[in-house]
Simulated scan of single mutants.
Amino acid sequence: MSAVDIAGLAKEDIERVVRTVLAKHLRPAAAVPSKAPNPLLVNISARHCHLTDEHIEILFGKGHKLKPTKWLYQKGYYAAEETIAVVGPRRRMLPEVRVLGPSRGASQVELAFTDSISLGLDLPVRISGDVAGTPGCLLVGPKGSLELKEGVIRAMRHVHMSPADMAWYGVKNGELMQLKITSPGCSTILEDLAVRGGDDKIKLEVHLDTDEGNAVNLTKATKVELLKSAGGSCGCHK
């Protein structure tokens, strides 16, 4: 704050200058609302896959378009009517893995830990879209099949946040948080919840996989809270 020359001013003028300076420099940040801008929702994200337009045509036929059967919490995203079989090493298979829409720029399969055991795959925990160096699999649809060279992951638990949500909780895209869950017999705190920052249209939503949701008895939870971690980043903002 630069110096203000008040020499020779009358008392009332000094008071006016002081009030003006304080109002300018000590005003609370308007970007942070007085209460949480959005309610917190925690959802279980079951095994699913994302497909490119090219792979949709290979698996379901030329010119095929995904058919929405259930709209998801985030606007514009949906569970499709279509399912595929995911085949791992030694022909171990998950016969009906739901396709989520809309189509993406790269195909990807997201599974829980028990799914990876069933398939015989050692899957890394990754943020969606971070598939470099991950295992592949065989995808089989009603009209064809294809070998996915990479793209099978265990999805890292994460929370979708708008800019207002991130301001309220005091976090940035890529940082890690904690999720405190109060439920009968198995209340716990889940560490390493990655912040996925988006635009103003994003709703505040946590995604856990089926193993995590079952372990904390999420369907019977009486309270869920987001907490700031001591520090750390998942690297997904790079």
Rank of each mutant, 00 (worst) to 15 (best):
G8N: 15
L9C: 11
E12Q: 14
D13Q: 15
V17S: 02
L22K: 07
A23M: 10
K24H: 11
L26E: 12
L26T: 11
R27G: 06
P28L: 01
V32H: 08
S34N: 04
N38Y: 05
L40C: 09
N43D: 04
S45L: 00
C49D: 01
T52C: 10
D53T: 15
I56N: 10
I56P: 07
H64S: 08
K65Y: 01
K65V: 12
K67H: 01
Q74K: 13
Q74M: 11
G76D: 06
G76T: 02
Y77H: 14
A79K: 06
E81A: 07
P89D: 11
R91P: 05
L94Q: 03
L94S: 07
L94P: 12
E96Y: 06
P102A: 09
S103E: 14
R104K: 04
A106P: 03
A106G: 05
V109E: 07
L111T: 13
L111Q: 09
L111N: 11
D115I: 14
D115A: 11
S116I: 05
L119E: 05
P124S: 02
G129K: 05
V131T: 13
L138C: 10
L139D: 01
G141F: 05
L146T: 01
L146Q: 00
E147H: 08
E150L: 03
V152A: 08
V152W: 06
I153P: 10
R154L: 13
R154E: 08
R154W: 01
R154F: 02
A155H: 04
H158D: 01
S162V: 13
P163G: 11
G170T: 13
K172S: 14
N173E: 12
G174Q: 10
G174C: 10
G174A: 08
G174M: 07
Q178W: 08
I181V: 13
C186G: 07
S187W: 04
T188K: 01
D192P: 03
V195P: 13
G198Q: 11
G198I: 12
D199W: 10
D200F: 07
K201I: 11
L204E: 09
E205L: 13
T210P: 06
D211Q: 03
G213F: 04
V216M: 00
N217H: 03
T219M: 00
T219S: 03
K223F: 00
V224C: 00
K228L: 01
A230Y: 03
G235E: 00
C236E: 00
C236Q: 01
